[in-house]
């Protein structure tokens, strides 16, 4: 953060229209990715045999892309709500850290503030984190509303496409696996991530051996326990070092 970004006294009075236009412009690049993935999401909801309204319902209630895709499979197999709760908690835990740099302070209206927090997705975080200038409330809210419209609109488009298709496209559900593979590659870019990957591998292997029917739940749980053990071990070791 630069010194000049200290409480910008009443940002230069730009018109509401300029700010809304800026927000829409900011939203386009990410929207280009969100809309097609939204279509895939809508297609998958219908192909999985779920009622079509599950697509918009998830996009409003969950509003987190990768989690929504994951939930289709979990709902179809009537996965216990406890497993879904733990999965949601762990998959979206990263959102806890978005608050640290998200420009929520520019939004004054109570309801607008609530929406802004509710709609703090990966994309909203990424775009605001990458932007250099100070945000205005209209620009930020336009960005977030636009994102949700792309996503819900994509889902509904997918639902519509699925309804006119003669039959399901076999194999389309692979998109979710492919998405997680690419996200893993993006987060595993430095050697520092290797220990975490090894612990995740151990957790997954143990889970499919010990609890093949609840592999996701058990693997995630074991992984968190192993990370806690890793943290405790680090504390213990640094304590021992400082004692020596």
């Amino acid at each position: 953060m630069t010194l000049s970004s200290a409480p910008a006294q009443a940002p230069p009075a730009r018109s509401r229209r300029t700010e809304v236009a800026a927000g829409i412009r900011d939203s386009l690049a990410a929207g280009l990715g969100m809309f097609p993935i939204g279509i895939a999401f809508g297609l998958l909801v219908v192909q999985a045999g779920l009622p079509w309204w599950i697509a918009p319902a998830l996009s409003v209630m969950a509003y987190a892309g990768s989690l929504e895709l994951l939930l289709i499979g979990l709902i179809v197999t009537a996965t216990p709500v406890a497993t879904i709760a733990l999965t949601t908690l762990l998959v979206n835990f990263r959102h806890v850290f978005y608050a640290f740099s998200f420009p929520l302070h520019v939004v004054r209206n109570r309801f607008a503030k609530a929406y802004s927090v509710y709609a703090l997705t990966d994309e909203a975080y990424a775009v605001t984190a990458a932007a250099k200038e100070e945000w205005s409330p209209w620009r930020l809210l336009t960005l977030q509303v636009a994102f949700q419209l792309y996503w819900v609109g994509g889902g509904l488009t997918g639902v519509a496409i699925a309804s006119v298709m003669p039959g399901p496209v076999k194999g389309l559900e692979f998109a979710l696996c492919a998405l997680f593979v690419t996200l893993t590659l993006d987060t595993a870019r430095s050697k520092a991530q290797v220990p975490s990957l090894v612990l995740a591998g151990l957790s997954f292997t143990a889970a499919i051996v010990l609890a093949p029917d609840a592999a996701l739940f058990v693997a995630l749980l074991l992984y968190v326990l192993l990370l806690l053990a890793r943290f405790a071990f680090g504390v213990y070791r640094s304590k021992k070092d400082s004692d020596a």
């Binding site: 835990f93 957790s203 997954f204 996701l216």
Partner: peptide, 15 residues
């Protein structure tokens, strides 16, 4: 530590 492992587990479970 969390993101990379959670995503790897999701990739493995979906595969």
């Amino acid at each position: 530590w969390m993101p990379v492992g959670v995503l790897a587990i999701l990739a493995a479970v979906t595969l």
